[in-house]
Structure formats: C-alpha cells, structure tokens
Amino acid sequence: MEDFIIWLPLVLLALAALMPLAAALLRPRAARGRREADMALYRAQLAELDREREVGRLDEAGHRAATLEVQRRLIAAAEQTEGEAQAGRGAMAALVLLPLIVAAGVGLYLLRGTPGLPSATYAMRAEVQERDERLLATLRERLAALDPRSEQAWQGYVLLGNAERARGRPEAAIAAWRTALEARFDPGLAGEVAETEIERNAPAAAMPWIERGLREAPNDPRLRFLFGLAELQAGRPEAARTAWQALLADTPADAPWRAMLTQRLSSLP
C-alpha cells in the first residue's frame, strides 16, 4: 500500500509533464505541411523585398528580378500536394502512445532503478574533477613528447582544446587549437578559434582566423556568419549587414540556419 501511495503521484506527475506535448499534438497548426510553410515563407520574402525597395536598399531592377523569382517559387509551392491526413493520423497515434510511454518508463525504473542510491557527494565530484585534471596533464605531457607536425599531435591538440573549452577555459582551448593550426591549417578549426574569441568579446583576434579560413573555404556558411558577427561586435553593423545579406542570398530556403540568420539581420541597428 505504501508503494502505491508513493508511485501514484509519480505517475500523475509524469502524465502532467507530457500534457504540453499532448496539447501541441492536438493544436491546429497555422501552416499545415511543407506546402503551406513554403508559401508563408515566400509571402514574407515578398513583403521584405517591398520594404527594402521603400527604404532605398534595393533598386527597381533588383526588386523586379527578385520579386519574379520569389513569385515563381510561390506558384510552384502552391501546386505541390501533400498528405495532411497522414500527418493528422500520426499525431493521434502519438497521442495514444503517451500513456504507454509513461507506463513503460515507470516499469523500467521499477526493474532497473535504484531510488535508494544516494547522490554524489561534493568529495566524490571533486575526486572526479581531480581525475580529469590528471588525464589532461597526462595528455599535455604526451603531446610535448610528440613531433608537433605529426598527425597524432594535431589530433591530440584538437582534443585538448575541446576539453579545455568544455571545462570553461577558453584561453587554454585557443592555445591548444592554435598549436594544431600551426602544424596544419583547417578552416573548421579556425572557426572554433574565431567563435571562442568572439565569445570573449575579442573580434580583432577572431577576424584573422575568419579571413584565412574564408580564403580556403569561401563558401563556408559558418565562417561567413562569424565574419558578420565579428564586424557587428567591432561596431560595424553595416559591414555585418552586407556580409549576412550575401550569406542569406546563398542560403537554401530549407537551410536550418536561415531563420536564425533572417532574425539576426532584422535585429541589426
């Protein structure tokens, strides 16, 4: 009886935690399906083109060409067909499964869980941290004994930089990554250095890495975004706008970062 009194509130709490998901599944969507989402996006792009022309950032010829292209995409999206009924049935099936998920979770915990296990003490956490520090010290010692130009050393310094950054030591992370970059330049790793420098509010230190990375990978969207971010942080919003507008023009409509980029552009002063 005591177990029932304990577990019943837990089950009810689990069901309550899943209620927002159930509400989201039942809520009618404003743009149902890929076709409607695309059409909403293209209509927003048309409105944005009109605003750009009104403020003088887009001439008539550019506005006309861009409008025709967006209208073409809008018409193509309107002609698409999509099985919305299948999506609705999928949502209902997921809704039916929610109580089963709760029951399965409780059952697994009853079989495998250890509610009587005490939480880790401060001494235990400190011991784990000390062990990690010893591992990092060992890694540094082994890297010091390697040829810094070797591939093994390159991978080791990248790993060391990742570990230092995860532990909240950006200066040490940058130092490790720079050692790797001196042996072999990599645009992606240069982006890590630049992003960390920007996080430290040091755009002047980030820009050389971004520019060098773009010379080797001129179409890299992350480096192009970081270029605009460094310009913005350095107090040059117009340069950031130019960089991000060019990136937006090259960004596919279904790119996962497009919405974020559009939002950053709209927030520029």
Rank of each mutant, 00 (worst) to 15 (best):
185 F>Y: 12
204 A>L: 13
120 A>M: 15
152 Q>Y: 14
148 P>C: 00
27 R>Q: 15
77 A>V: 06
171 E>I: 13
8 L>A: 14
128 V>K: 12
178 R>M: 06
82 E>V: 01
228 G>C: 08
63 H>E: 06
8 L>E: 03
153 A>P: 00
55 V>W: 03
159 L>E: 08
83 G>L: 04
193 V>L: 02
92 M>H: 12
174 I>V: 13
48 E>M: 11
248 L>G: 12
68 L>Q: 03
96 V>H: 05
256 P>E: 03
123 A>I: 08
14 A>M: 04
154 W>Q: 08
213 G>K: 03
236 R>I: 02
2 E>Q: 15
75 I>W: 15
168 G>S: 11
132 D>M: 14
265 L>G: 01
216 E>G: 04
157 Y>E: 11
63 H>Y: 13
255 A>F: 07
252 P>K: 02
6 I>S: 09
178 R>W: 01
44 A>N: 15
264 R>N: 12
269 P>H: 04
1 M>N: 08
246 A>E: 14
174 I>N: 01
198 I>G: 05
165 R>A: 10
196 T>M: 04
44 A>M: 14
81 T>W: 15
234 A>D: 12
6 I>C: 06
45 Q>V: 06
229 L>P: 01
23 A>E: 06
253 A>L: 11
134 R>M: 05
251 T>G: 02
89 R>L: 09
223 L>D: 00
127 E>Y: 06
80 Q>H: 05
80 Q>A: 06
266 S>Y: 06
112 R>I: 13
103 A>F: 09
58 L>S: 01
36 E>Q: 13
129 Q>P: 03
104 A>Y: 01
216 E>R: 07
223 L>F: 00
207 M>D: 02
236 R>H: 07
81 T>C: 12
108 L>K: 03
36 E>Y: 10
149 R>C: 05
260 M>E: 09
178 R>A: 10
60 E>P: 07
206 A>I: 00
171 E>Q: 07
190 A>T: 12
158 V>H: 04
218 P>W: 03
101 I>F: 08
188 G>P: 00
28 P>I: 05
212 R>V: 09
269 P>K: 11
15 L>A: 07
49 L>E: 07
109 Y>T: 03
166 A>W: 12
154 W>H: 11
229 L>K: 04
159 L>K: 07
248 L>Q: 15
122 Y>T: 12
204 A>V: 12
86 Q>A: 14
202 A>M: 10
243 A>D: 03
127 E>P: 01
162 N>W: 11
191 G>S: 03
184 R>G: 02
255 A>E: 02
80 Q>V: 05
124 M>G: 06
239 A>P: 02
168 G>W: 02
134 R>D: 08
29 R>V: 10
21 L>I: 13
260 M>R: 10
260 M>W: 08
151 E>W: 09
35 R>H: 06
46 L>P: 00
192 E>T: 14
230 A>W: 01
61 A>M: 10
265 L>W: 13
93 A>M: 10
226 L>C: 09
108 L>P: 07
21 L>Q: 04
236 R>T: 05
17 A>G: 08
49 L>Q: 08
18 L>C: 07
32 R>F: 04
136 L>I: 10
220 D>F: 02
6 I>T: 14
163 A>F: 01
198 I>W: 00
127 E>Q: 08
59 D>T: 09
174 I>T: 02
141 E>Q: 15
200 R>N: 15
161 G>Q: 02
100 L>I: 12
45 Q>H: 09
146 L>K: 05
37 A>K: 09
29 R>A: 03
219 N>L: 10
264 R>Y: 02
